[in-house]
Structures are given as C-alpha cells and as structure tokens.
Design a protein around this nucleic acid. Structure first.
Lengths: 109, 109
DNA sequence: TTTGTATATTGCAATATTACGATTAAGTAG
DNA sequence: CTACTTAATCGTAATATTGCAATATACAAA
C-alpha cells in the first residue's frame, strides 16, 4: 500500500518518526550541516554546494521548512535560509529522549 | 526517479540519513520502545502489541536487524529479539553528534 | 518596459516503501 | 508420522519519494 497506518501508533511515536524521516535523506542532512557550518544565513549557494538540480533542492528545503527545522526570509530576489534554533532545540530534545533510553541491564540474547 | 544519489554525499551524511530513515517509521519506533520497556527478550507479542500483520512486523524487524539496532535469537519455534546495545550506543553517538551542533550565535533571519 | 536573476511550482518517470494474504520453513507435541 | 505453532519469505497492490526539465513567479536593474 505504501501508506503508513499512523492511527495505530501514539502521537509521540508518530512525531519521532516524522522528525527522523525528514533527517532520513542525505541531501537534507547536507543542507542542515551546511547551515550549521556557515552559522548564518545562506542565500542560495546550496545548489552549487550539493550537486542536485535547483528544483530538487527547493523541494528538500520545503520539507525542512514544513517540519520547522529551518526558516526562510525573502531578501529581494533571493531567499535567506537558516536553522530555526527554537524548533531545532525542541526536536533535539524529543529525539534525545528517545535515543537515551537506558539499555544497561539487557541480559538477553 | 525515487532513487537517492548517495554518491553526491559524504559517507557520514549517508550514514546519518540511513540511521534516521530506519527510525523514520512509527512501527519501528514502537518496536524499539517496546524492546526497551520490556528490557528483555520478546518473542512475538510484538504483533499483538502493535496492530499490524505478522508479515509486516517481520519486515520491520528485518530492517532493524539489518541496520544492527536489534538482535534476534532463535529459541525453539519462536525468535527472541532485543536491542543490540553495542550498536545502539554507536548509532546514538553518531546521531547525537549531528543533533548537538551548536546553534547559539545564529543572529540571522 | 524589457531583461535578467533567483526561487517555487508543476508535471512527469523511475524507483522505493508499506501492508497484507498466502505460502514456506522449522520446530514441538501428540 | 501428523497436527500445530511461530516466524520468514514471496507476490502483489497501493501509495510515497526522489529527481529533473520546464514553467511560473517575483523582484531588480537597465
């Protein structure tokens, strides 16, 4: 079917999955890393930086923006992107809580 | 095309994306959470726990095993699954390093 | 206004993912 | 052996994702 049965899972489980999913593509990882590295706004050199078509990058940016991980400000004819620090922190906390589950006393297998 | 151009990205970027991708489905999140909660082997009640078909759960388990996040031991007619703690720690470190990128001095946008 | 530049959107084609039923494989119990 | 249980695999249908070219939009400069 290709259709995820979200109704079978908790809100938290769906949220974790959605966050992970948006990070689950190397182009989006690369975009985020670049925005962190520059540590400021970036106005469109992402297409050169990553080797994909302009329309493809634009689509990935849209997804990142939709999940709230980045912000985009229009500056004349170009658009200025950067990490949405507030949402990034929230997202980080949700993921960290999931990743940090204690694993010490698993004496099985 | 539906085909990711992995050759355009670094090994690290692809690795982060692969890890995130496998977590990017609520059923797999639920499986992992259950294994952590039980904190021991679980032998097939995952199908009851989560409301998906046995073959679907089996497929998700396969993906988690393939990424090394869980281990499966055959015990008679059933199979015993648990978190692969060593690999989980490695994965956690890779993801944490990505998530913990400093975000403080972004004065843009 | 016309031209140029930067980004978004649209419309595909190719491939991937999700889910399930049916079947298979492998073990256990009688 | 047969019957039963459990889990993996196969086949298939429905939907999603990825990527690109072409086009549209929006602004700036001449």
């Amino acid at each position: 079917m290709g259709l995820i049965k979200t109704e079978k899972f908790s809100k938290e489980q769906n949220e974790i999955a959605l966050i992970a999913k948006v990070i689950g593509h190397p182009a989006r990882v690369a975009i985020l890393q670049h925005l962190f590295k520059i540590n400021a706004c970036v106005c469109g050199d992402l297409v050169d930086e990553i080797g994909l078509a302009q329309s493809t990058i634009s689509q990935h940016l849209k997804e990142l923006k939709h999940m709230g991980l980045i912000k985009g400000n229009v500056e004349g004819t170009s658009v200025c992107y950067c990490i949405d620090t507030e949402n990034w922190s929230k997202m980080k906390q949700i993921m960290s809580q999931f990743l940090d589950q204690d694993v010490s006393n698993s004496t099985c297998c």
